[in-house]
């Protein structure tokens, strides 16, 4: 049960972060599976902002080699990546 609550929380926080980033870039809606780089929501600097946010919010460590497209492709991808780390 606690794990489920945690998972919902992770997704909500990620969504909120992405929503704010999208707003700044003038993108009004982002679905869970939409490519964040291709749609211009997360640019080269945005990825690092996102990494800093994840490290801070979820107390995870993210190596340079993990900062690749597939882990940060979409809201769903980011969530998978973070949950994988938290459950390890």
């Amino acid at each position: 049960m606690t794990e489920q609550v945690e998972n919902v929380n992770v997704k909500d926080q990620i969504r909120e972060f992405v929503r704010e980033a999208a707003q700044r870039k003038g993108v009004s809606e982002v679905t869970d599976d939409q490519s964040l780089v291709e749609s211009g929501v997360i640019d080269s600097l945005g990825i690092f902002r996102l990494v800093a946010f994840l490290e801070e919010s979820f107390r995870v460590r993210i190596g340079d080699e993990e900062i690749v497209g597939e882990n940060f492709e979409s809201i769903a991808g980011i969530e998978r990546f973070v949950l994988n780390k938290l459950n390890r």
Binding site: V37, S44, I47, D64, I67, V68, G69
Partner: peptide, 9 residues
Amino acid sequence: GSGTAIFTA
């Protein structure tokens, strides 16, 4: 496609 990550890191 990971050029930007490599460059920024």
